[in-house]
Design a protein around this nucleic acid. Sequence first.
DNA 1: CTGGATCCACACAGATACTG
DNA 2: CAGTATCTGTGTGGATCCAG
Lengths: 213, 213
Amino acid sequence: MTTKTYGQYCGVARALELVGERWALLIVRDLLVGPKRYTDLRAGLPKIPTNVLATRLKELEAAGLVVRTVQPRPSGAIVYELTGYGADLEDVVLALGRWGARSLGDLRPDEIITPDILVMALRSTFHRGARKAKYELHFGDIVIHALIDADNLTVGLGPLEGAVILEAYAPIAPLLTGAINGAAALKSGLMKTSGTAKDLDHFAAAFPIGPPA
Amino acid sequence: MTTKTYGQYCGVARALELVGERWALLIVRDLLVGPKRYTDLRAGLPKIPTNVLATRLKELEAAGLVVRTVQPRPSGAIVYELTGYGADLEDVVLALGRWGARSLGDLRPDEIITPDILVMALRSTFHRGARKAKYELHFGDIVIHALIDADNLTVGLGPLEGAVILEAYAPIAPLLTGAINGAAALKSGLMKTSGTAKDLDHFAAAFPIGPPA
DNA sequence: CTGGATCCACACAGATACTG
DNA sequence: CAGTATCTGTGTGGATCCAG
């Protein structure tokens, strides 16, 4: 929320006044996965200057997008959580993620992948109508799960009972762009799975992304 | 496109690196309505500093979102146009517009409304399945039209043959948030129409927006 | 250790004037 | 018409410091 306005009676302009500043939508992205503490947010956004994080959180709170709550003792932890109003930004974040993912090349050494990023990547690219399945996705230390039930998708952190396990290695791009050929991925060592090559293909079909341009 | 990156292998982060800077998405918004000249963009975004506009256009062109073409003589005009890649941002802009429009209050004297804003507002809030209709919307000097054909919407600048004419006056908020009661709007002088109160109600039903929070 | 606040340097935005 | 040049100020990045 800049003090600067665009001077336009326009939903787009208003939205950008509220969440258009640097880092704001990435904070929202991580909070869409779940409530977080200050330190968790820093961990998920290592390059954010701490003063900017503090400022953004105050702005988002002032704008009614985020609530700051102090947990009861003994934890006493301070937790940041999206309000319903803030959570309604999910459509915006998913649309941005869908569009931007097409421009992702191979994973570079200066780029990180966090659990929150993976969760939102799957939510971004989910294709309704994919066949029912349970996936558990491993990437390094990161473990997330996806539960597909026809038109509904649930993606969250951690493992999932009874899921097919997919283990991915960098380069991860084919995974996030649906360009997986199961048999080839297995053979090349790009991925491992507790299931079959067909499982990889189904997974790829459930999370497609178009070509860069 | 900042030289600064977020350091994340994430579609949202990548998208924000490309169009996250101030004014960028408002330029895209206006170009989504149609190709424009430098001066047209300035007219639609009066508060943008001219050097910022020039910089953004170069960045958008370098990123492959916009093409700069010189029209053949005698016009010789320089026209900026979205590429397919850039036009794919429509989902993002519409989602932002939908979310942000809920936070629009009454029109303030320091806020302007342009034809492009109105066109994108209607595209943002269109509700598929609205009944077939042709509307011509007047607001001050601005005239735009909407053609609804069940699941398809065409909104553009200027008049439309055979359309129901809706003339709106500030405060315009009820119009853009679907909170119109046709009879009341006619009686209060908020709107005039060449049709009936029912036409206003149908129009409002076609372009609904939820409450602020 | 969490949850920030403070300080400084600098890049970018804002405003305006000017030019091919 | 389509920008460039210049100056100024604020927001950001980066590092460090501090209170509970």
